[in-house]
Amino acid sequence: MNPSQDNQSQSDTDSASQKKELSRRDFLRSCLRGSAVVGIGGVIGVATARSSAAGSVWQIDPAKCTACGRCAEACILTPSAVKCVHAFAMCGYCKLCTGFFDNQPHKLNSGAENQLCPTGAIVRTFVEDPYYEYKIDEPLCIGCGLCVKGCSSFGNGSLFLQIRHDRCVNCNQCRIVDRCPSQAVRRIPAAQAYIIKGKEPKR
C-alpha cells in the first residue's frame, strides 16, 4: 500500500512547488559548489607556491640542545628515537673522556663503576697512546643525554643528540617538541635529515 495515494491531489500541487523550489535550490547549490571549487583551487595555488615535493623530518639542533634528557622519555617510542651521535672529527680522543667516565672515576677502564652511561652504550677502544676512540652502540643507547652533558661541559662537545630516522616514525606532531625546554627540535628538509656537529653549513 502506498501511503501517498491517500491524498493524491495535494501531492501533485506539492511536487509542482517542490520542483520550482528544487531548481532554485539547485542553482544556489551549484553556485556554492563553484565557489568551493574556486576556494580549494585557491588553497592549492597558494600552498603549492610554498610547498616542495620532498617532505620534512624532525631533527634536534645541537646548538640549542641542552641535553636535559627529556627526549628519552617524551618520544612515543621506547626506547626513544633520539640517540647519542658522535662527530668523530671534533673528538679529542681523550684518555679521560668526560662523556664516558663518571665524575671521578675509580680507574680509567670500562668497568661499570667508572662509566657514566647507564646502559653501557659507549664502546671505548685504544687507538694509540694517549688516544682512545669512543663509539655509540646504538641499540643500547636510550638517549638520556648524560654523556652529551659530560662531553659538552668539559670536553669538545663532539657527542650530541640526534633523532635517528631509522627509528623515528615522523609523527605529524612530535611529542618531544612539546617537552623540549630549548625548542631545539624542529622540522628540517628531508634531503638533509641530520644536523651533524662541526659540519654545519657556514652561515
Binding site: A89, C94, Y131, N156, K197
Partner: peptide, 9 residues
C-alpha cells in the same frame, strides 16, 4: 659549535 678544548689528534 667551536669549543675545542682538546685539539683532535
Amino acid at each position: 659549535g667551536a669549543v675545542e678544548r682538546f685539539p683532535p689528534p
